[in-house]
Design a protein around this nucleic acid. Structure first.
Lengths: 202, 202
DNA sequence: GGACTGACAGATATTGAAATCTGTCAGTCC
DNA sequence: GGACTGACAGATTTCAATATCTGTCAGTCC
């Protein structure tokens, strides 16, 4: 009858069902209904409901990763790049939270229920920060013993501005000031930062 | 018959009931039963169940505040004081989370269900950080335009190590390294940090 | 013959009736 | 007369019956 059922079509339908019903109520039966097929057919493309949800989540995160990649400007200083990158991530998350709260909550649940997805997301974004900092070290704008560890520290220090657990604080009218203060502190720290090693030397 | 029923006795009994039953199951009737009185008597001392819970929480937080105060060493440098203070807060929360997970979860719920308690706790601890940083500014160890804002930034940047939403990450074997990296970055930043003002001047 | 269906077993979620809890207050007891 | 009791109304929670969902697979249909 209609075109063959593809994984892509199932992902799109799943996203729509998640958007409409939310993560708690969206069922595989709903997805099948939306596609006009039996739910058994969905299991022909995805082994479990969890795998289906994970595939949708990964697709969504990949879009963010690509978008973040595009923020970087090879001409700009590392400090400016880092600030712009963090600002863009914060704006992206904050807007998503305020403008489409249900979708934001949906992906918050989807990300938290997987064990590998958070590592995937974190690894990718910390990798981008690592590259920004490495560029800064190359031009002697930044100083650090261990770029990777420092990148993780930048990520950790800015958790309040991207971790969904802190989303309610993003509505605070002074949140941009708080963001600027943290980023200034972090960027100032990158200009001369040594991580204490086990062999001594504070 | 027995001694008169005091607010203090009710608070102690409430803490015990919370410890035993958890925040979801602990009832005012349980507290009254533990004290051998009718639950109406409890309402003679606390207007609502919420007020009772809040009083217990405040007592618990006040103990932490006093303990944190005692960490400060007037002889030490501001950097060392800040590092020790943050380390102590982190250790305190991490130990509480691993050694008495139910009690930790209980107070996490109690703190989150109040509107004024989190502000109270945050205001007090950021106040302590403010004093540490001010001492550093006085000795020219630290540089900052706005001590209070910078103190808030230090608090925000270290949220991963004290906000209960991140408690699950505290079990990670490398968490102390992550802590050291963030604190080093922050302390390095304090040595020269200017918060961008609305009038320009990056 | 390979994509799809639909009935099925066990697991999970929903529902509403019954039980418990919160907060009040007239009354008891020293 | 002031601290305490206990019965009460309305709100919330519990629990078990009922319905729905997940994942499987033998069978259907182009």
């Amino acid at each position: 009858m209609a075109e063959a059922l593809t994984g892509e079509a199932i992902l799109a339908a799943t996203e729509e069902v998640l958007r409409r019903y939310g993560p708690a109520k969206a069922t595989v039966v709903d997805v099948a209904k939306a596609l006009g097929v039996s739910h058994g057919s969905v299991y022909r493309h995805f082994p479990t409901k969890a795998a289906l949800r994970e595939a949708v989540t990964r697709r969504w995160l990949d879009a963010i990763h690509a978008e973040m990649e595009s923020v970087l400007d090879p001409q700009a200083s590392a400090g400016d790049n880092l600030r712009a990158w963090l600002q863009h991530l914060f704006d992206r998350k904050r807007l998503s939270h305020s403008d489409e709260p249900e979708l934001f909550a949906t992906f918050k649940v989807l990300v938290s229920e997987s064990t590998i997805i958070p590592d995937y997301h974190l690894g990718h974004l910390v990798g981008q920060i690592t590259r920004i900092i490495q560029a800064g070290v190359d031009t002697h704008e930044f100083v650090t013993d261990d770029v990777r560890t420092t990148a993780q520290a930048v990520w950790d220090a800015t958790q309040v501005f991207h971790h969904p657990a802190h989303a309610q604080e993003w509505g605070n009218p002074h949140i941009q000031d708080a963001f600027d203060a943290v980023v200034s502190l972090v960027v100032a720290g990158l200009r001369y930062n040594r991580i204490p090693s086990a062999t001594g030397d504070a």
